[in-house]
């Protein structure tokens, strides 16, 4: 069974059909790329998966269970984590605290436990800190732990979003243009990180404009154009697909 199944998803904004009857599946353990020209509806698909938007039609199944009506934080708790295309960190808080936000849904201490400093609260806090540091190390930004998030370079802010997402212990991670604003060197490091995420047993779905990254990192691609799913297959198949070349890849060769 696929980890994620999108079934005939449709999302309209007024008269605009941003996502038009899109269906595809993400197999367990895969790295899948979602590509397409600007405005094709890729980010909207992500926002539907994470519950930021509600679909007008269709359903979303995660591990066979419909998540269409769940609030975002519950979807995260089920094991879906995301990053944002337009970086959305907690800019005035430290890098470490940003990652601790991801640990939140795997911990429990509330206001009373905090005021009383109960033993379980202390243990939990120490464990969350260790985990946050480990995720910073995993993404290679542990040296910045005490810095304010907004002071990081663009590329490192993207990595911080990945670290925060991983801290929620997802089984499925969706990355919205993770290489946006990165230089070649940073992009190469990112590809390695994405592969290591998969080695941890986490399934990856990513949106990306950088064709090199997509072709190198993904084993399966889904192509959107004007909200519709126009092609699907391996990178080699997609590169050879007439319609895709016309709609998307062709543009680059002009």
């Amino acid at each position: 069974m696929s980890l994620l199944q999108l079934q005939n998803l449709t999302k309209r904004f007024g008269g605009l059909v941003a996502v038009d009857d899109v269906s595809f599946e993400v197999p367990q353990g895969a790295i899948v790329g979602l590509i397409g020209p600007n405005g094709a509806g890729k980010t909207t698909v992500f926002n539907l998966i994470t519950g930021n938007y509600r679909p007008d039609q269709g359903d979303i199944l995660f591990e066979g269970r419909s998540i269409r009506k769940l609030p975002t934080h519950k979807i995260v708790a089920l094991g879906i984590a995301r990053t944002f295309q337009t970086i959305r960190l907690f800019p005035k808080m430290s890098v470490l605290e940003n990652v601790l936000a991801g640990c939140h849904c795997r911990t429990h201490a509330g206001a009373v436990a905090a005021m009383l400093r109960l033993p379980f609260q202390k243990r939990e806090e120490a464990a969350a800190l260790a985990e946050a540091h480990a995720e910073l190390a995993f993404t290679g930004i542990e040296h910045y732990a005490d810095q304010v998030a907004e002071n990081l370079s663009y590329g490192n802010q993207r990595l911080l979003e990945v670290a925060r997402a991983l801290a929620s212990r997802p089984r499925f991670i969706i990355l919205d243009e993770p290489a946006g604003g990165m230089n070649d060197f940073e992009t190469a490091a990112l590809i390695r990180i994405i592969r290591r995420i998969r080695e941890r047993g986490i399934t990856v779905l990513l949106i990306e404009h950088d064709m090199n990254l997509v072709m190198e990192a993904c084993e399966h691609l889904v192509v959107l154009e004007n909200g519709a799913n126009i092609a699907e297959g391996t990178p080699a198949q997609i590169q050879a697909d007439e319609r895709v070349i016309e709609a998307y890849l062709g543009v680059e060769e002009d």
Binding site: N52, T72, H73, V76, A77, R88, F90, A101, H104
Partner: peptide, 19 residues
């Protein structure tokens, strides 16, 4: 921290798993 996350960016807080 949870209160601060939601003050800084509610969408990001919810998206990080905070109710």
């Amino acid at each position: 921290r949870a209160l601060n996350y939601l003050r800084e960016d509610e969408t990001a807080a919810e998206g990080s798993g905070i109710n």
